[in-house]
Amino acid sequence: MSQSIPAYDPALDAPAHHHAIYDYDSGPPVHRGKFAIWLFLATEVMFFAGLIGTYIVLRMGTPTWPDPADRLAVDITAFNTFLLICSSATMVAAVEQAMKGERGGVLKWLGLTILIGATFVGIQVYEYFQLIAHGSLPNVDIFWSTFYAMTGFHGLHVSAGVVWLICIWIAAALGKINKENYMKVELAGLYWHFVDLVWVVLFTIVYLM
């Protein structure tokens, strides 16, 4: 049993006063940020899975579920969905421009994405106002509870995405986005596509089914 603890020797054990930082790269050849964003999106998937799972359970457990078409403006929202899908396309274009280092292209396509995203949120807020004016508050019944929770949290995600894109747009306008760090645009793009995809799912189950 070697209980003895090696004596402390400042000459050997003290940190070198003047040293370098060693930062290694291991694992699959994926950018760290991209890897992390995927992990983050996994948590987001689980978050929405919680909400959607709740919706499914509650809907199954309710004898008569109202027809969404009677209660919601499906056509406006269908248009809104179309808009959001378009914004995914403009986002792809923005990332492409960023890869090439085209500042003008980034500003244009990113700007368009931001515009569409903001419109989407605007239309949703308008829809909320209409509904609330008709007294359709979240505490009226379980249909409205789930409706507001799901669309509301999605709306918050879109809004956060818009803010994120605006930050990048400003950075690009200041000339801080270039070929080397185009990844900043791509990461936001991944998030944007995710939010878009979630909406397609939500729209289908909340508005159409």
């Binding site: 948590t43 919680g50 709740t54 979240p138 019944d141 789930t146 929770a149």
Partner: peptide, 25 residues
């Protein structure tokens, strides 16, 4: 944590809504 925790987060948010917004989850 990555895969389990978000579910609790969504559940606690729904419980908060039940308490403050009178939803009925």
């Amino acid at each position: 944590q990555l895969f389990a925790l978000p579910v609790l987060t969504s559940a606690s948010i729904m419980q908060i809504l039940d308490r403050v917004a009178d939803t009925g989850f």
